[in-house]
Write a protein that binds this DNA or RNA. Structure first.
Lengths: 160, 160
DNA sequence: TCGATCGTTGGTGTTAGACAAACCATTAAT
DNA sequence: ATTAATGGTTTGTCTAACACCAACGATCGA
């Protein structure tokens, strides 16, 4: 690596900011989610599943970046509430295809609706456009890495 | 209702996204921070302290939104490494004025430099402008709530 | 002087998650 | 048909990052 003095990288690290902000949001979300019987991780899982339904559990582990054994537990909880469904993959009967149930989709929608108030509070200093921009940026960041995580899963052998 | 196409707030809740993304960032950051003897929370604390040096510990508790007793522990760790300094407030000798030391500021700078690579990886799908936008938005969100938390506290921010 | 406040210590409890070992069902390779 | 590898599951141990409570010393303010 040529250690180029990459000129003016102004500090602008958003890591800490993001972390801090996510925490604030999570704190407030909890009180909203509890009455729905959800915890933050459930919401994340459901959200991911809406976008990436039909994934195997290994895929989910990669997307969520949590250990496979913990995915099992998480899905168990969701399945117990009928929010998700595990189906055997016909192509490879070892695999489980995970998908949102109707109940799950509806609950997710309700949760998001309830969460609107929380986000309004935390993001109150952003106007409509700015929030939209933020959302778009975040999604752009997450989506691509999801793609990366899934590439290996769909077709190719595990040597990636 | 005469069908106002109430442009039905398309879900667009960024909470889950934000949480998920923060996690990804944190996971990768850990491996970078460990050799520096830091953990994620330390980085957050140092970052906050750079911007809000001279705050009391209660202020920090409010800003960080963590319990006061836990702030003590966190600061203990940082002080043990000489990264921060607790001075008695002359105005009210019960208070501790917390500030970054030179060592702390330097370490923070080093950490941020090291973290650049991580963020580049996670944000690689955003171009320079987009990252700047993201940063600005995040900061706008966090700053105002800080202001709220600090209203009574800050008299003269000594640096920045 | 008395009560409230700031920081501190110590302790308990919860949650998320990593990691390891052993297992079953299934698939793939020989 | 064995055998080895894989996906998922269970169980169990470990850690970090908190919240929350109780008690204490020092200090401030009335």
């Amino acid at each position: 690596m040529t250690s180029l003095p990459v000129v003016n990288q102004p500090p602008h690290r958003c890591g800490a900011l993001l972390d801090h902000l996510a925490r604030r949001l999570r704190l407030r979300s909890e009180s909203v989610l509890t009455p729905l019987g959800l915890r933050p991780r459930h919401l994340i899982a459901l959200t991911v599943l809406r976008d990436h339904g039909g994934s195997s559990q290994q895929d989910l582990a990669k997307i969520l970046e949590i250990d496979g054994t913990n995915v099992v537990g998480l899905l168990n909880e969701l399945e117990a509430e009928n929010l998700i469904e595990r189906r055997r993959s016909p192509a490879d009967r070892r695999r489980h295809i995970v998908e949102l149930t109707d109940v799950g989709a509806k609950l997710l929608a309700r949760a998001e609706f309830a969460l609107a108030a929380v986000e309004d509070e935390v993001f109150r200093d952003l106007d409509e456009d700015q929030r939209e921009t933020l959302y778009t940026l975040l999604q752009q960041v997450t989506n691509t890495t999801n793609a990366e995580a899934c590439t290996a899963a769909v077709v190719t052998p595990p040597s990636c």
